[in-house]
Simulated assay, not measured.
Amino acid sequence: MELTAEIEAIRDGLGDPARLLGEFRRAVLLVPLAEGPDGGLMSAVSGGIRWIYAFTDEEALARFAQARGEAESAREWDYLSVLGARLADAVVPMADRPAGVVVNVADDDGSMFFPPVAGIVPDANAVDLAGPGEVA
């Protein structure tokens, strides 16, 4: 089953979280590049968490551009193709704060958040695991 189908199954209450995570890790996702001098991957911060935007296909990325009011602009949306596993295991640890991945964020019924918790991101970056002297 592909990632979008697993997301749909989870949202319908019929999915398996482990299968969803496996599909996320195997999926090739489109991650838009941020404009401006700092560049990097496009993301947003909410609740102290940096959410990296990722999309399952160009159509989902186009819906995101449209939701931002940028579909008709002359802006070219450059992006990288990245495995979900690479985002979780290599990109999240490089973030300036706790980070997770949000897939197809502009799709009301098809988006899914992969938060910075144990089992999704490396334990060292999981906000739900307490280190010595820390509170989870």
Rank of each mutant, 00 (worst) to 15 (best):
A126I: 01
L33F: 00
E8R: 15
A44S: 10
V91N: 05
V102R: 07
P37Y: 10
S111N: 13
G15C: 03
D16L: 02
D57Q: 06
D89V: 01
A118Y: 01
F64A: 08
E23V: 04
G47S: 07
G110L: 03
A71R: 15
L30R: 15
G15I: 02
G13I: 00
Q66R: 14
V45R: 15
R75D: 14
M42N: 13
P93I: 02
A74Q: 11
P98I: 02
D107T: 11
S73T: 12
A44Y: 14
A5W: 04
E134I: 01
N125E: 07
E72T: 15
R63P: 11
G40D: 02
N104P: 12
A106L: 00
A88R: 06
I120G: 02
A9K: 06
Q66A: 13
D107M: 09
G47A: 07
L20G: 03
A27I: 06
P122N: 12
G110N: 10
M112V: 12
L20Q: 07
F24V: 08
Y53C: 01
P132G: 10
R19L: 05
L129V: 04
W77Y: 12
V121I: 06
L87P: 05
L83W: 14
G36N: 08
V31W: 07
V31C: 10
S73Y: 00
T56W: 05
E6H: 09
D109P: 14
R86A: 11
V117M: 08
G119T: 08
V102P: 04
R63L: 06
D16V: 05
V102S: 05
N125S: 14
A99S: 09
G48Y: 01
E6A: 13
R63W: 11
M42Q: 12
V127S: 06
S46N: 09
P116N: 10
L21H: 13
D12A: 13
T4D: 09
G110I: 05
P98Y: 07
S46D: 05
E8I: 01
R63I: 00
D96S: 11
A9E: 04
P98T: 03
G131Y: 01
W77I: 12
E59C: 05
V121Q: 03
L29D: 08
A65F: 01
F114E: 02
L20F: 09
D108G: 14
A44T: 11
E70R: 15
L83S: 15
A65Y: 04
L83P: 15
A65H: 11
Y53G: 00
F64P: 07
A99R: 03
F114Q: 04
A99Q: 03
R26C: 04
L83N: 14
V105M: 07
A18K: 15
V28C: 10
E134F: 02
Y79F: 11
I52C: 06
I10G: 12
L29T: 08
E59D: 12
A130H: 02
D78S: 14
L3P: 10
Y53M: 00
S81V: 01
L80K: 09
I120R: 03
M42A: 14
S111L: 00
D109E: 08
